[in-house]
């Protein structure tokens, strides 16, 4: 069974648990959680991940800054990133995708929609 490593970056424990709950339905999934962008960068420096799922509004370092930093880091720039956020306006979506995110999912999330996006990215890898 192939192993899939996910990094879930969320300041809300409720959302972290909900996203992890959904991702656990993918066989071979291993989930690491981070509270904010800085925490995520620390975890990226020690582990390899297949997909990063990040919120935008977080303390210390927000999700957009994290996307930008990952895309400018030669070691991690190819890791697919999914933004999961309450910022659902079209301009927010465009901004997130322009920074290099692969997908943009507005909250509240539907498990089926999230799994479709994640499986689509894993299938294309």
């Amino acid at each position: 069974m192939p192993e899939h490593n996910f990094l879930v970056v969320e300041d809300s424990p409720t959302m972290r648990q909900l996203i992890s709950f959904a991702l656990k339905r993918i066989p071979g999934s291993k989930i690491v959680e981070a509270n904010d962008g800085i925490d995520a960068l620390k975890k990226l420096s020690t582990q390899k991940f297949d997909i990063i799922l990040t919120d935008i509004n977080m303390p210390i370092m927000d999700g957009l800054k994290l996307v930008s930093m990952v895309r400018n880091d030669p070691a991690h720039k190819t890791i697919p990133i999914i933004i999961i956020t309450t910022e659902g306006a079209e301009e927010d979506r465009k901004r997130g995708l322009a920074l290099g995110a692969n997908a943009y999912i507005p909250k509240p999330i539907q498990t089926a929609d999230l799994l479709t996006v994640v499986n689509g990215i894993l299938g294309n890898k």
């Binding site: 959302m15 909900l18 309450t86």
Partner: peptide, 14 residues
């Protein structure tokens, strides 16, 4: 804080 998170993230209130 948890109630706020639930209402915002799970229900979708602004």
């Amino acid at each position: 804080k948890i109630i706020l998170e639930i209402v915002m993230n799970l229900i979708g209130a602004e």
